[in-house]
Amino acid sequence: MCLAVPGKIEKILEDNYALADFGGVKKKICVDLLNGVKVGEYVNVHAGFAIHKIDEKEAKENLKLINEIRPDYRKV
């Protein structure tokens, strides 16, 4: 129930639509569910709708999390 894909906003279209780039393939999506989407921002898209912005700062924090060395797990 959760298949959403990250896309980069390429162009804002009229009537709350936008053109998003998904790793080289572009598709028109609806941005009714987000406020103020800008070109260059990343969003998660599900069933043709952008459902959440992807925060770049948070993405870096998320990355730090998965790179964390856990001292507990170094002992066998």
Binding site: L3, V5, F22, G23, G24, V25, K27, V45
Partner: peptide, 13 residues
């Protein structure tokens, strides 16, 4: 496999 083809497949499940 082309990157865009993987993206299209991801997008469509």
């Amino acid at each position: 496999v082309k990157k865009e083809v993987v993206s299209a497949c991801d997008l469509l499940g």
